[in-house]
Amino acid sequence: MSKHQYAMVMDLNKCLGCQTCTIACKKLWTDRDGTGYMYWNNVETRPGLGYPRQWDRIGGGWKDGALQPSPLPTMDDYGHPWEYNYEQRLYEGKRQPVMPSPEPTSGCNWDEDVGGMNEDENYFFYLPRICNHCTYPACLEACPRKAIYKREEDGIVVIDQDRCQGYRYCIKACPYKKIYFNEVTGKSEKCIFCYPRLEKGEVNACAAQCPGRLRFVGLLDDPESPVHKLVLIHKIALPLFPEKGTQPNVFYVPPFNPPKRENYGKSIQEDPRVPLNYLIYLFGPDVKDVLTRLESELKKTQEGGRSEILQLLIGRDAETRYHVRPQLVQIQV
């Protein structure tokens, strides 16, 4: 168990699906050889295929204390990365249009905005995903090289690139399929929760760039941090697929009041624009209590009152949303 635990809360009611977080992450960390298909941060449409497709159904994680089997996703599941012929168009004077190659057949958020149907009404929402920096990481347990470790000082899970031999047991074990194999280096890579930024007092790149201001970052064990308040005090943020047994440290405020014609003032439980069963599938049965809490807060403000929870969720400024504490986290040298 780590001394401290960095955590992130994402408010799904505010996600625009704009992928600015994805690009921020990609430009910073995965713009290298072999990383084209890697999205340490991705945003996918739910319900939907996800990235890699069907990651939520192929296995991994824990059950009764044992790792669960899973195949490796294939490049067809990720989509083969493509490049555009900018050289010819911009530098070689060829007049053909800029085209991707190879022909894209799948990719990150390939089924954007398709969503699902609910009593003749289409519905969808966005789910941004990073590594969950789990308290009980299945990837760490699966690695025979002991190349994966959870940083004692802040709970961030990282892969030691010197020890990794590219066996990919970690990818199989991760129920969220958030580890990627780099065939060029022969090693596996994953989100590092921007620890080099946190150590300098800067928040994660994905959070810093988010125009929807939906990400909250801090130490879960720091009573002053927004993540501590949202997860442990107000209890309105839940981990994804808690039954996978890894105890994620990324939490989500479920979508609780998506707009729909003729439903003004009705709670999502009275008029489930997003089927409750789908939210239970993603976040477990506790989502019902969370929705009830959120709806009562909304009601409070609609009646002219003030909700501390909703004020926090609005997250007007960086000081509210982030509580990065490099001075509290003693970096092990």
């Binding site: 713009d31 290298r32 050889d33 072999g34 990383t35 084209g36 298909y37 890697m38 490796l72 996703p73 294939t74 490049m75 990720y78 083969h80 990365p81 490049e83 900018y86 050289e87 990919r168 990818i171 990627y180 194999f181 780099n182 065939e183 060029v184």
Partner: peptide, 23 residues
């Protein structure tokens, strides 16, 4: 035969060497 990685830094190139298969 894996694609040879050029000596130039990736950020100076239009194209990066891609992972062809992960499995």
């Amino acid at each position: 035969t894996l694609t040879e990685v050029p000596n130039t830094p990736p950020e100076t190139r239009f194209r990066k060497v891609q992972t062809e298969a992960d499995d």
